[in-house]
Simulated assay, not measured.
Amino acid sequence: MPTPSNMNGKVAIVTGAASGVGRATALFLAKAGAKLAIVDVNAEALESTAEELRNLKTEVLTLPVDLSDTRQCQTIVDKTVDTFGRVDALCNVAGVFLPTHTTDMSDDAVDLTLSVNLSAPFKLIRAAIPHLIEHQGAVVNVSSCSAHPGQAYLALYSATKAALNQLTKSLAMEYMHKGIRVNSVSPGGMMTPLAAGMRNLQDPDPTLMGRIAPLRGLVEVDDVAEMVAFLATDAAKGYHGAIINIDNGITAG
């Protein structure tokens, strides 16, 4: 697995940092020397991540923010710059995963999925771009293998993740000559609190569920997080507009 380069003196924003890939990404970046602004709606778990980062002698700003209120995105970037003076990397890891029969999906669930999975990453990127250009930084979006094949019971989730990948490629083109890098990581199923949402799906058709079963098993959280952290650093200088699948072959065929 690629290793993040030295991030001493640099600053990264990581959303979804209370657990799973977000938490692991923050830890990898801290070990590379970065200062961290960590974001999550779960304030208690976010503080647990912050304590772990402080134990690594990392300077950390905790931002317990609900990203469904996308008006907070500019504030996240502003507070990071006010605290640390710069932003060198933005890792959009936070996501909402609500598997359901399409006709059962409430308006609130629709709005939450669209806000957290697509609107918030866009608005965070929009706010961070001037700072990223100044410091030749990077955006890393965490998408999903669900962005590629059609998947039953995940229609809106899959659509937002496909849109996030397209956003990645379009931004890569728009900022081709500005020195920043924009990439995406598409993980397969992992043992995270987010994935536990599959247990809430009522009466799924097993023949449809079997189509997305990982034949090689689940993906390791640390493998995904290490790639996210790597792409956030100068070690990944050759990556721009890339969509990197880490899914144990789910999207291979």
Rank of each mutant, 00 (worst) to 15 (best):
G150I: 04
T102G: 08
I129N: 11
L167A: 06
I129T: 00
F97D: 06
T103D: 14
L112P: 01
M190E: 12
G179R: 07
I125R: 07
G150Y: 06
N183Q: 09
T113S: 09
P99H: 02
M173C: 11
V142G: 05
A172R: 01
L167H: 11
V185D: 09
C145R: 09
V142I: 15
A109Q: 13
V93I: 15
K123H: 10
P187K: 12
M191P: 06
H101G: 11
S158C: 01
V110H: 01
T192L: 01
T192D: 05
K123V: 00
N165P: 02
I180G: 05
A172G: 14
P99V: 00
T102R: 05
A163S: 09
K123F: 14
T192V: 08
R181T: 13
A94Q: 04
M176A: 14
S146C: 08
Q136T: 15
I129A: 08
A162N: 09
E134H: 13
G137F: 13
A155G: 14
F97G: 03
P121G: 03
K169M: 12
V140M: 03
T192Q: 05
T102F: 14
A120D: 06
R126L: 10
E174Y: 12
V110T: 10
G189I: 13
D107L: 13
A147S: 15
F97L: 09
A172Y: 08
L194F: 03
M191C: 10
N141I: 05
S184F: 06
N141E: 08
M173W: 05
A155L: 12
K169N: 10
Q136R: 11
K169T: 15
Y175S: 07
L118R: 04
M191S: 15
Q151W: 03
A138P: 00
H135K: 12
Y157N: 10
V96T: 09
S106N: 04
V142F: 01
V116T: 11
S158F: 01
A155M: 09
I180T: 08
H131F: 12
A94L: 03
S119Y: 04
V140Y: 08
M176K: 11
G189F: 11
L98R: 10
S158M: 00
G197P: 00
A159D: 03
T168H: 11
K178F: 06
Y175E: 00
T100W: 00
A109S: 12
S158I: 03
N141W: 03
L132I: 10
G197T: 01
V110Y: 05
R126N: 14
L132D: 07
V139M: 07
S158E: 06
G150N: 05
T192R: 00
D111M: 10
Y157D: 06
L124P: 04
V139F: 03
H131E: 12
A128T: 13
A172E: 03
A94W: 13
P187G: 01
G95K: 07
N165R: 11
P130L: 07
E134V: 12
G189W: 04
T168P: 06
A94F: 12
G137I: 08
H177T: 14
H148N: 13
A152F: 11
N117H: 10
L118A: 08
S106A: 11
V139G: 00
G188W: 03
K161S: 08
S146L: 09
Y175W: 15
P193R: 06
M191A: 14
